Simulated assay, not measured.
Amino acid sequence: MEFAIVIILLSVSLLVYFKIADKYNIIDKPNHRSAHSQITLRGGGIIFPIAFIIFCLFNLNEAIQDYWSFGLGLLAICTISFVDDVRTLSNKIRLSVHLISVVLLLYFTGAFTLMPFWVWPILFVIIIGTLNAYNFMDGINGMTGVYSLVTLGSLAYINKDIIQFTNENFILYPILACMVFLFFNFRKKAKCFAGDVGSMGIGFWVIGLITLLIMRTEEYKYILLLSIYGMEVVLTITERILLKENIFEAHRRHLYQLFANEKKVSHLIVSSVFAFCQLLVNIFLIHSQLPLWVVILIIFIPTGGIYLGLKWSLKKEYNL
């Protein structure tokens, strides 16, 4: 019954937001980097901070005691990202808020207590880099929602059947939010896009869960629950550096962009393939007893080879 109420509340909240976004012209206009060709409502990812607020209402005492720092970090990064969706902010302002949010996230996971101080800067770089990877990959219908659903589902399985590292509802609420969001986004003509508030919001939540899991288990392999995103972004940035391009400028060099923009493959198919690849990685990762370095080699050698082969083929076909 609780989850049915949550789904209704999330759906109504998003429909109300659509009215507000339409009234105040919060839209995404196609540009040279876009994989879409029509004006669409932006900021549908506001459903993720709303999901956390609903989580707090249903778990008030626990939220106040255990999840306050995570909540402050999530709301801070979502607020600044939503403002950035509406009007462009300076990099200094955005980065400052991101740093504050990451501090709150690391406090929530216990990293400052469990990890030596010299590791803290590394954690900052990894988390902020992963957040930006989430943002970079949010470019076609369904990608953010389906990929996050796979990772959250994997985390829910780990929490239930392998080791409980958090409140079950703390994973199920963002799953429900993804499902509601995908109802409006996972379609040929999306009703809305996630926007920065969505990619940063769900990215922050997923990263928080993975960091919490790593701190509880001391199993660093779980960072590979986001390995497909990580490989795509790292290889694309490396390619742009080799081509002497400005990596901070908008581009269309991601593999998913080449398939969607040049090859004209359905956004829904591309998003589903990326999510399915991550699902296969997660199944192997969760049940593997091999050393971490062996797991990394098994995952990245074949997937990296396939990635580079597909990209080379597409670039040759379209003279890119």
Rank of each mutant, 00 (worst) to 15 (best):
L320C: 11
Y147C: 10
R94N: 01
I269D: 00
G195R: 00
D84P: 02
T303R: 09
L75I: 15
G309R: 03
I27R: 12
I7D: 01
L105K: 14
A133L: 03
D196H: 02
I122E: 01
I128D: 06
K188W: 03
E219M: 09
N91K: 03
I122R: 04
D161N: 15
T211F: 03
F136T: 09
L212D: 04
A111P: 00
A4S: 07
I283V: 15
P116T: 10
T109G: 02
L104F: 15
Y157G: 02
N132D: 11
I93E: 09
H251D: 13
A76F: 15
V83F: 12
G43D: 01
Y134W: 09
F136H: 06
P302E: 07
F284P: 11
H32M: 09
R187D: 05
G230F: 13
R240H: 06
F170S: 10
L74V: 08
S271I: 12
E249Q: 15
Q289T: 15
A275H: 05
K92G: 00
D22L: 12
Q65I: 05
F52E: 01
W118T: 06
T130C: 11
M1V: 08
V16S: 11
L320R: 11
I64T: 00
L72A: 13
R240P: 07
Q257M: 03
L114G: 09
Q278F: 07
T88I: 08
L75G: 06
G71S: 08
I207G: 02
L75Y: 09
A177K: 10
S154D: 07
F3V: 11
L95C: 02
F165Y: 14
I140G: 02
V83L: 15
A275T: 12
T79H: 00
I158V: 15
G71H: 06
S34G: 04
E232Q: 02
L172D: 07
K92W: 10
M200V: 05
W68F: 13
L155Y: 06
R240W: 10
L106V: 12
L99E: 00
Y24R: 01
F70G: 00
P30F: 07
E218T: 06
I175M: 14
T166E: 03
W205G: 01
S271P: 08
